[in-house]
Amino acid sequence: MNDDRALTALTDHLHEVRDSLREVHMTVPASAIFAAARKRRRRAVAAAGAACVAVAIALALALAPASQPRPVHVHLAAWSVDTHPNGTVTFTLRNASQPARLQHVLAEAGVPAMVRWGEVCLAQGRHVLLPTEGFVRETGVRAYVNGRRSSPESILEMISTSPPNTKGLNWSWTITPAKMPKGAQFVISAVPADRVAPGHIQAVWEFVPSSAHVNCAKSVKPG
């Protein structure tokens, strides 16, 4: 019976602990719960829509006759994109302009991309990054592989054609789409040189999973 008495005492103790928390109240109003649920529904609807679009595209691609990617040679004053017989794509950026068109042209060349000018975009959380990423500050060029400063070669060969202290954009990249990890996209973003605060990032490029959440801001310090 001692055992039962001990369990009864424990039950009483649990009740006492619960009752001692009478002064603890939720501070979240019902309106915040409704708002969070609304936001979640909107996200779910958007995700379902995106899934439908993705399925439709996948079906269209599956049903379409197999074809070689057609050569791409687009030359604008601001940027140019060229495909080469060896399967590589050269992308040269001189001026941040026409991001939507650039995104489209890169995709046509076999490089799924997200292009943002006037802001700096970084994928959230280092764990979602694929091996190659890089960023340029107004004072120079830095590239990272697996978080270490390095010269990325396997997926992307970056050639800086501007001296490190030049403030204008004048870079070119050679990308091998066949070596891009499955589901990855090339995210590139930049702000004009005259709008970069000292010590802030001017441009960022990363290969990230297309599902990764990407945060964009007008001004970002290297973290």
Partner: peptide
């Protein structure tokens, strides 16, 4: 109905989860 349930149950639920 949910707002009434929330008003009546939220503190009890919070205390139990807090324990």
């Amino acid at each position: 109905e949910f707002a009434e349930f929330y008003a009546a149950a939220r503190d009890d639920c919070l205390r139990v989860v807090l324990i």
